[in-house]
Write a protein that binds this DNA or RNA. Structure first.
Lengths: 145, 145
DNA sequence: TATTGTTATACTCTATAACTATA
DNA sequence: TATAGTTATAGAGTATAACAATA
């Protein structure tokens, strides 16, 4: 856990804007939006661990850059659905290429196979953490994978 | 990479002071100090990715709490060596127990074996990132492990 | 003169609370 | 009245720069 925090900090420090073409936070948001089409802001706020108000500022940046678009949900007009634009997709692809290079640098101590394992484990952990469980009954889980 | 940043943020958010008995940053620092006895502040600053001035503030907190002690290095009196006190060791142990419980919660989607693998991979990556390589010659590395 | 650590200050990021509109 | 999003403001966190002590 301590290790995870330290590695994340190393990564964050090196993910400068000139290096990957956008802020690290923006990259995380765009990446999430690609995997979860038309997410509502509330959902984004929870998934990215960003307070609702901060999310507004983040989305303002992204919308101004033309990377995302906010549309009112016809079903519930209080809601805004956020979608990735074509330009946002391209910017995301560029950023991910740069990020992959950075990844190779930082994880130079790991073999390709180990890096793949790490990615898989993280994906599994994050997706499990994403579903906050229907209600209670956490004890039974995590016995096997 | 994005996943790593997201997971770290989830972890950081949940590592509240009342939960683990100290700030997350303090835990990271104490943990490092246990593994690297009598580190100089400069070394700490680099390893923890904390600017030298912020490190001073962090160490002030820790020293005030009685968890660490600063001593001048007799060999180079400009240097301060930071050491963990007995109280610091106890506080660290308590925090790590609480943190381990949190870990089980957050990584509930992973089996015990998977969690162990993750820990190992992270340790490997961090320790590799710790040595910034003698100089140049990064291209040859990272072909195999 | 260069380096280690410290202090002072300014800036960025994040969180708390009040506000608008829809339900 | 409650919820989704926005705005305003304050607080925490972080970085830039000048400083003191030692080499």
């Amino acid at each position: 856990m301590v290790l995870l925090m330290r590695l994340a900090k190393i990564l964050y420090r090196r993910s400068s804007e000139e290096r990957i073409g956008m802020r690290a936070r923006q990259l995380v948001a765009l990446s999430y939006l690609r995997d979860h089409r038309d997410a509502a802001q509330q959902q984004l706020s929870e998934a990215l661990c960003v307070d609702a108000n901060n999310l507004v500022l983040l989305l303002n940046e992204l919308e101004e850059a033309g990377h995302v678009r906010r549309r009112r949900d016809p079903a519930d007009r209080r809601r805004h659905r956020v979608e990735l634009t074509a330009g946002g997709r391209r910017a995301l692809a560029r950023a991910e290429r740069a990020q992959a290079e950075l990844e190779r640098e930082i994880l130079a101590g790991l073999s390709q196979h180990e890096r793949a394992s790490l990615r898989e484990l993280l994906a599994c952990a994050v997706s499990a953490a994403e579903e906050p469980e229907p209600a209670g009954e956490r004890e039974i889980a995590s016995v096997h994978a």
